[in-house]
Design a protein around this nucleic acid. Structure first.
Length: 431
RNA sequence: GGGGGGUUACCCGAGCGGUCAAAGGGGCCAGACUGUAAAUCUGGUGGCACAGCCUUCACAGGUUCGAAUCCUGUACCCCCCA
């Protein structure tokens, strides 16, 4: 590792609003003195990372770009336990098979964000590797001995759970902190790691690791937490009505991913630009300025969506997302497109098969079409939708709920595009 | 063990013999406005063969011309006394 690091890193993080708390006032100076090994943990509780993981992942990336060495720690062991921090109820435990498969795919995803290639590149470690052989008695003697219960009880993550009367805290979850603390100490001992970053809900776990390092080895360790990103209404960022926004293109298509960022509210978009893009300060401040003059142009949202989508899905994914967006929201009728075009643009839109004969005979009512396509859960709902003017075929409003579909309604060789309201689409495809 | 209260649509919650598919609010869906926003306003929100019919008010029975509403039993929840 070259000895050079970017001395601006901490200032940049501060300007971006990514610093919530630090464990030591000398930390900014300490960071400029040479390359450090920094780690953040990711629980493999799902098959894919989601937008909620992105802040930590991108912060690791910023450290890497500034000349430090990141470790992405996958919590194969801790994921079996479940972190009680910020949770109101007990987690379900995952099987080892699920965990193993999750770890694989998460590793895959991280490669577009961190550079793992060279010998000084990022490291991906799984704490299951060093925890699996750790005996209970040994662990209690080595690690547990260093944890005063009164200190553990005073941690916010534990305290808040104990104060709830409607859900308890199992001994298993209570022990989570020891495992994460030990991770830090382990990484320090074997990989020279001296800094842990995480969301502000990780403060308790991070300081536990720092305390443990000092008690066991007299090590001096550091920690930084970032604010948890919430929307104006207090709900967590990264969730839509349909659930989490995933990084995996199988779970959230590049189009849907792009749309998520494009729809970020004016109040949040400034923060998002700072958190989720590498855009320099000047560019972001220009966008702030532009937004205060005419937020309706949505330059900030477009730039944000573009940057983040490119990072996660690459240039090709971004192009697809933009093409689909333009087609879907240009407003005019959908025509002069081929099956291939439509199926590509509407890649992740739900679709249903219908019989060609049904269409030719005019046997399919428009009400049934919306139900079959899954846009409406009952015929009554479909009827209401049409009566209220919220139903479109190939982007043209249909007002007659008695209408039957015919071959004239095909947008291309075999596809009919149904639309509910402004943003929900479905395809009917006749064979 | 004794006494009292409760269980209503996705959620909260009114209804306490007919006019109840069931007030009100939240959520959700759609429309207007707009920027594919926010806020606001309007309409909708059990199903269907939709001016009508069918199935709903914890569950099972009963009384009645007629029950979410009354009675009996069952399950679950809460409170008070022991």
């Amino acid at each position: 590792m070259s000895g050079k690091v970017d001395p601006q890193l901490f200032d940049d993080l501060t300007w971006r609003g990514l610093i919530h708390q630090t464990t030591d006032e000398n930390l900014p100076k300490w960071l400029t003195e040479g390359p450090r090994v920094v780690y953040a943990g990711f629980d493999p509780t799902a098959h894919s990372l989601h937008v909620g993981h992105l802040v930590a992942l991108l912060t690791l990336r910023r450290f890497q770009k500034a000349g430090h060495r990141p470790i992405a720690l996958i919590g194969g062991a801790t994921g079996m336990i479940g972190d009680p921090s910020g949770r109101s109820d007990e987690r379900n435990l995952l099987s080892t098979e699920e965990l193993e498969s999750n770890v694989q795919s998460i590793h895959q995803q991280m490669q577009s964000v961190l550079k793992f290639d060279d010998s000084q590149g990022a490291m991906l470690l799984n704490n299951f590797d060093w925890m699996k052989g750790y005996g209970y008695l040994t662990f209690l003697r080595d690690i547990g001995k260093n944890f005063p219960v009164n200190v553990m009880l005073s941690k916010d993550s534990v305290k808040s759970r104990l104060e709830r009367t409607d859900s308890g805290l199992s001994y298993t979850e209570f022990s989570y902190m020891l495992l994460q603390a030990y991770d830090f100490v382990y990484l320090n001992k074997y990989h020279d790691c001296t800094l842990q970053i995480g969301g502000s809900d990780q403060w308790g776990n991070i300081t536990a690791g720092i305390d443990l390092g000092r008690r066991m080895h007299g090590a001096t360790l550091f920690g930084i937490t970032s604010p948890l990103l919430t929307k104006k209404d207090g709900t967590k960022m990264g969730k839509t009505a349909d659930g989490a926004v995933w990084l995996s293109p199988e779970k959230t298509s590049p189009y849907a991913f792009y749309q998520f960022w494009l729809n970020v509210g004016d109040e949040e978009v400034g923060t998002c630009l700072r958190y989720f893009t590498d855009l320099p300060k000047e560019t972001i401040e220009e966008l702030d300025q532009s937004r205060s003059e005419d937020a309706g142009r949505r330059e900030s949202q477009k730039k944000l969506a573009e940057e983040v989508t490119r990072l996660i899905h690459g240039e090709a994914g971004l192009t697809k997302a933009i093409n689909a967006t333009e087609t879907l929201f240009q407003g005019g009728p959908i025509e002069n497109l081929t099956d291939k075009d439509l199926l590509e643009i509407f890649h992740d839109v739900p679709r249903a098969q219908i019989e060609r004969g049904q269409l030719n005979q005019g046997e399919l009512t428009i009400i049934d079409a919306f139900v079959v396509a899954g846009l409406c859960s009952s015929k009554g709902e479909a009827r209401r939708l049409i009566d209220q003017g919220g139903a479109r075929i190939n982007n043209e409003v249909v007002s007659d709920s008695q209408k039957n579909l015919s071959p004239d309604d095909l947008a291309s060789e075999s596809v009919i595009v149904l639309k509910k309201g402004k943003k929900k689409f479905a395809l009917l495809r006749c064979e």
